[in-house]
């Protein structure tokens, strides 16, 4: 546990000096909050129910994109940065275990992505109340709450697993970032598809999405942990 914390602190120190990561962690969430606000604002008084539904579904989707996207940059740099600096070998020469290192790196991406996602959602709710004079309908409903608090950790974990796998093979952080985004997008396809449906996102859909993410996440994390072994890192990683 102690060593995981040491890794976390170091990752965050390094990230704080990385423009790519800061951009993803600050501007992207602000953009998503703004976009969600626009959707909700437009959807509020609309008298075509189907259009209203679509707008609300889209607003929710923005908050699910965040935990999938924010970890990409952090995780990609936390692996490829080590490769580029040649710092993996001294790091692996310490008594840290393979699993501690993996967890330290993974949590370094998952924790901020969740905090930022939830803070963005809080900001969104706050601005809704302030500007729209109260909470819009369909926002603090069980499916939304289930999605915001139940799906986001799963999305974040899945995204981190994918990025760590890709980064073990790649030697360029931007390339790893891009490849990982392509791999992560399918995870939110069901939600994207729902933005054109005529019904609001349901608990049933969120549940299904959760099951899919747990399965996909388990596979990806299992593979990533397997790749994350000293021997492999030192002899096979490119």
């Amino acid at each position: 546990m102690r060593r995981i914390k040491v890794i976390l602190v170091k990752e965050w120190r390094e990230s704080a000096r990385n423009k790519m990561i800061l951009f993803g962690a600050i501007f992207l969430p602000l953009f998503m909050v703004a976009a969600a606000l626009v959707m909700v604002y437009q959807g509020k008084g609309i008298d075509v129910p189907a259009a209203e539904v679509a707008l609300f579904n889209t607003a929710l989707m923005y908050f699910l994109i965040l935990p999938a996207i924010i970890p990409l940059a952090i995780a990609a740099y936390s692996i490829i940065g080590e490769k580029e600096q040649g710092s993996l070998e001294p790091l692996l020469a310490t008594p840290i275990s393979d699993l501690e290192l993996f967890l330290g790196k993974a949590l370094a991406s998952v924790i901020p992505s969740l905090i930022i996602t939830w803070a963005s959602f809080g900001l969104f709710i706050g601005v809704c109340i302030l500007l729209l004079g109260g909470l819009p309908p369909h926002v603090l409903t069980p499916p939304w709450i289930a999605a915001i608090f139940g799906l986001t950790p799963l999305l974040s974990l899945f995204s981190v697993g994918v990025t760590m796998l890709v980064s073990s093979r790649a030697s360029d952080a931007r390339a790893a970032y891009q490849i990982s985004s392509f791999a992560v997008i399918p995870a939110i396809v069901p939600l994207i598809l729902y933005t054109s449906r005529k019904t609001l996102v349901s608990l049933w859909l969120i549940g299904l999405e959760a099951v899919v993410l747990v399965a996909a996440g388990a596979i990806v994390l299992y593979l990533a942990i397997k790749v994350f072994q000293r021997e492999q890192i030192l002899t096979r990683w490119k």
């Binding site: 170091k10 390094e14 000096r17 710092s87 070998e89």
Partner: peptide, 14 residues
């Protein structure tokens, strides 16, 4: 044991 690896491998941003 302590290891001085072939390349210094320092964290440039720290």
């Amino acid at each position: 044991v302590g290891v001085l690896t072939e390349t210094p491998g320092l964290y440039k941003r720290l």
